[in-house]
Write a protein that binds this DNA or RNA. Structure first.
Length: 320
DNA sequence: ACCTGTCAAGTCTGG
DNA sequence: CCAGACTTGACAGGT
């Protein structure tokens, strides 16, 4: 059984390498000429993609194949202020180059649209804005020439005082989406509202893969034994080219338990790893820790000491 | 060089 | 019904 590790959006070890640089709407408005406004936006976008390329090289150098792209690659991409900006034309070539690199090196890429991207909001304008945001993400993936194995990870959304109706609204909206979006959306259990069991059921009904977040499950469950559900959760990935994806992080403090700690607690993860070992299926781990890639390196260093674990390289391991 | 309040987007709670 | 919390990285303006 092989487990591959990756991290989210930015590196804690590479300096001056943010892929999420932006400008505030207020400051964009302060720039007096249209030409200079567009130049500023364009230069930020190109800088973000250039830093993404640097992150790709860094990842390759450390055997990291699993990586989540930031949602902020293109500054103010779906903001009304930038509606005259053809950002795609400005970054098309860079996206192609990134995509070529990703394919050549077997990178497994995904994105996680922000928490205001909600497909089940009762407010039509919120749902519409969310779909526009999904299309923005889709355009990045398509610009990179990535196939449908590049996923968009979403949460189910709010409960709006009635979970049953809210789940139904999710289903209706999901079914109405363009096929290019439907084939990329996957669902993750969240830390407050929709439990792993509920998300699994929804994923089974819609035939979409489920990303399991073990920290969220720990925050939000109804006494379910996760391991009993693991085979069914992994089974939602049967038709996919990549292994199931598991999100891993540790609570920051006892009080602030929903927040992500700097590093991943090894003993907590080992518990899961042992249990998952009995299921015996390969999976990918997305480390969601404040210290990003540094948290990944430290976790691997700790796992190296465990007798039943054999390291394959800097970012993957094998369990006999 | 460092510090702090603010920022496009939503939802939920509590007053 | 409205203000504030929630959460995150980065900006922007200040020292």
């Amino acid at each position: 059984m092989i487990v591959r590790f990756g991290y989210v959006a930015m590196s804690a070890t590479l300096k001056d390498c943010s892929p999420s640089k932006t400008i505030t709407a207020a400051n964009l408005t302060k720039i007096d000429s249209e030409k200079r406004r567009l130049a500023r936006l364009s230069s930020l976008a190109r800088e973000n993609l250039n830093n993404t390329q640097r992150l790709f090289y860094h990842n390759k150098g450390h055997d990291i194949q699993v990586f989540r792209l930031t949602s902020k690659l293109i500054p103010l991409a779906t903001h009304p202020l930038t509606k005259n900006w053809d950002w795609f034309a400005d970054v098309n070539e860079q996206l192609e180059a990134l995509g070529d690199f990703a394919r050549e090196n077997n990178l497994r890429l995904s994105a996680h649209p922000d928490h205001f991207t909600l497909l089940n909001s009762p407010k039509e304008e919120v749902t519409e804005a969310s779909i526009r945001d999904l299309h923005y993400h889709l355009r990045i993936f398509e610009g990179m020439g990535l196939d449908t194995s590049a996923k968009l990870v979403l949460h189910v959304g709010g409960s709006y005082g009635n979970k049953k109706e809210s789940i139904q609204r999710f289903k209706n909206t999901y079914q109405s989406l363009a096929p290019e979006l439907k084939s990329r959306i996957i669902l993750e259990n969240d830390d407050k509202i929709y439990t792993a069991r509920e998300v699994l059921e929804l994923c089974q009904q819609l035939a979409i893969p489920m990303a399991l977040d073990i920290h969220h499950h720990w925050c939000n469950h109804q006494g379910e034994n996760l391991i009993e559900y693991l085979p069914d959760i992994f089974a939602t990935w049967e038709k996919e080219p990549f292994a199931p994806k598991v999100h891993v992080s540790s609570p920051k403090t006892e009080k602030d338990f929903r927040s992500h700690a700097d590093y991943v607690d090894v003993s907590f993860f080992l518990e899961f790893l042992k249990a998952a070992g009995t299921v015996g299926q390969d999976f990918d781990v997305m480390i969601e820790a404040k210290q990003k890639d540094e948290a990944l390196f430290r976790l691997i260093k700790e796992l190296k000491k465990v007798p039943f674990i054999k390291l394959i390289n800097e970012a993957s391991l094998m369990i006999e």
